[in-house]
């Protein structure tokens, strides 16, 4: 070993460039938005709101703070838990659509299923199919994924609300579409990056193409795929809570309403229920992931 290779300095090039560009962009953004530090400091009215709101942080409401409570209304903790349940329902229903759709698109967008390396050339038509049709299908799937993913779920919700009116299906579809795009992207990457040894072994043993794909390519990637799906469910719950701001009966709706009527104690109750739901889910999905990937 020569001394030069021992003394090779660590490469700083790309990293410093990236950080320098970020810094420059941040300075440019600061001037573009005409920001000033004095604007972060709340105005007098802002201080009052902040004080009223923050002072209730440690004393969330246990009873409804509304002036008029219609008879037969359940108590506040029940409303909050019901809203949390609705939040989970919307998220789960959306994932129920996003997983199959993401799986299908992910399958079409993974390059492994039609690469020559993977699949034996059995006859002429099959080869033609792979040569001409597969790249088209693959490109189509990729474009589809990019389009689904690039529109935020709230924007999908607004489009669906405009097109359909306030229907629970608008929220479910709004979460399901972008999430299926993200799932498809990650699924296809995981399948493409999974170790190929099993697939090669199956191929040389004479397995059919679907067998190679299912047992040689998908199975090795499956733990990662499931782990990522659990993480996405966490994200879906967050999105479903936020979609409440647009009128769906999830936690966001209650946070907006109680905040608008300045019932800060109630707002904190709903916020704590939301935080608890998300933290519990994070712990659950975190331990699932750890066990799956160990």
């Amino acid at each position: 070993m020569s001394l030069d290779s021992l003394q090779a300095p660590p490469s700083w090039g790309h990293k410093t460039t990236c950080l320098a560009i970020l810094l420059l962009a941040a300075v440019a953004s600061w001037f573009w938005l005409e920001l000033s530090l004095t604007d972060v400091v709340p105005s007098r009215g802002g201080w009052l709101v902040a004080r009223d709101f923050l002072s209730r942080a440690l004393s969330p409401a246990w009873k409804s703070e509304a002036h008029y409570i219609p008879p037969g209304t359940p108590s506040l903790p029940w409303i909050a838990l019901g809203a949390a349940a609705q939040t989970l329902l919307f998220a789960a229903a959306a994932m129920g659509l996003a997983i199959p759709l993401g799986g299908l698109l992910g399958f079409l967008a993974s390059s492994a299923w039609w690469s020559d390396e993977m699949i034996g050339r059995r006859n002429k038509t099959a080869r033609r199919f792979r040569q001409f049709l597969c790249p088209i299908i693959w490109t189509f799937a990729r474009v589809q994924i990019a389009l689904l993913r690039s529109i935020h779920e709230i924007l999908w919700a607004i489009l669906f609300l405009a097109a359909l009116g306030l229907s629970p299906m608008a929220a479910v579809l709004a979460i399901a579409l972008p999430f299926s795009g993200v799932l498809a992207k990650i699924y296809s990457e995981l399948i493409d990056e999974a170790p190929r040894a099993q697939a090669h072994a199956l191929r040389s043993a004479g397995a059919s193409t679907p067998q190679i794909y299912l047992f040689g390519l998908v199975t090795p990637a499956l733990p990662d795929m499931i782990a990522y799906t659990f993480y996405r469910f966490e994200c879906a719950v967050r999105s479903s809570a936020v979609l409440g701001f647009f009128g769906f009966p999830t936690l966001g709706l209650y946070i907006r309403q109680s905040s608008a009527s300045l019932n800060h104690g109630e707002t904190w109750t709903y916020l704590y229920v939301l935080i608890a739901t998300i933290l519990l889910l994070e712990i659950w999905s975190g331990s699932v992931r750890r066990r799956l990937l160990s």
Binding site: V40, L274, I275, I278
Partner: peptide
């Protein structure tokens, strides 16, 4: 705690305190 509140809800709460603007 910082990451458990979704951005949209955080912005909604901050807006009431800081007032409109990019902050």
């Amino acid at each position: 705690l910082l990451r458990s509140v979704p951005e949209y809800i955080l912005a909604f709460l901050l807006l009431a305190m800081i007032g409109p603007g990019a902050w």
